[in-house]
């Protein structure tokens, strides 16, 4: 099977003023369909830069990047926008929903920019299905300020899924959430991954990374370790444990 992501000797150099910042120094990485990968590293390790390149928001200075079999390292701005629209679903730390816009409209938004015109009825159906997939089918006409943080992140995940991307890319998806909601969101990701969706997630929380299948640790722009997750956690079981513990506390 073809790799979803095939990075070969990727470098990224920023020319900021007098000093050149070499943020990523020769990263090679293959991610196969159906994988669930956590990219970890402290700040300055180059993980955000790598993430931006994987997400086709930025272009490597050197090296090649094949996304779903397409060489995307040489594409221009507009072409990258089309690739993002077609192949990548983004989930951000700060949810990044449009305020004063209903959940449904937020989820429909990426379809506005499809190359192939999607009839508005189909947009509606697909958006609703996507919301149901993350368990928010009954909140379609709520606006972001009427939703909790976890619900907002679910809307963002629904939005990321609506164009049926080859890759779901999450940047610190649990960074703004409390621990229980974080586990809930990881549960959503695990469920989607079980359904065959490839997920790459950037995080700096070790216990969150334990819900994934593979962890890549970056340091100084290079891959330090790349190993399967030992002792993988299951979000459903963890949630059950947490609830039992809470029940015990309230009983006592």
């Amino acid at each position: 099977m073809n790799a979803v992501i095939k990075l070969t000797e990727i470098h990224k150099v920023y020319h900021t003023g007098e000093v050149d910042v070499h943020a990523v120094r020769g990263v090679s990485l293959d991610i196969e369909p159906g994988e669930f990968v956590a990219i970890m590293g402290s700040s300055g390790s180059g993980k955000s830069t790598l993430m931006n390149m994987i997400g086709c928001l930025d272009r490597p200075t050197e090296g090649s990047y094949f996304l779903d079999g397409i060489d995307v390292s040489t594409l221009d701005r507009e072409q990258r926008a089309e690739i993002r629209n077609d192949k990548i679903g983004f989930v951000f730390q700060g949810f990044n929903l449009l305020s004063r816009t209903t959940a449904l409209e937020n989820v429909e938004m990426p379809m506005l920019y499809n190359r192939r015109r999607v009839p508005s009825r189909e947009q509606n159906e697909r958006a609703l299905k996507s919301l149901e997939l993350v368990g928010l089918g009954d909140r379609a006409d709520h606006k972001p300020n009427q939703l909790s943080g976890g619900q907002q992140q679910r809307v963002a995940i629904a939005r990321a899924l609506v164009n049926r991307p080859s890759l779901l890319l999450a940047d610190e998806p649990t960074g703004n959430l409390d621990s229980q909601t974080s586990i809930e969101i990881m549960g959503v990701f695990q469920k989607l991954n079980d359904a065959g969706i490839t997920i790459v997630m950037v995080t700096h929380e070790l216990d969150i990374a334990r819900y994934t299948k593979r962890t890549v640790i970056l340091r100084d722009g290079k891959i330090l370790t790349d190993e399967p997750v030992a002792g993988r956690l299951n979000a459903e079981i963890e949630l059950k444990k947490l609830r039992q513990a809470q029940a015990a506390v309230s009983l006592a």
Binding site: A81, E82, R84, N96
Partner: peptide, 15 residues
């Protein structure tokens, strides 16, 4: 920020 979000999900400069 809204422009950034739209661009991230695939809006081209033209859009």
């Amino acid at each position: 920020r809204e422009i950034g979000i739209r661009m991230a999900v695939g809006a081209r400069g033209r859009d």
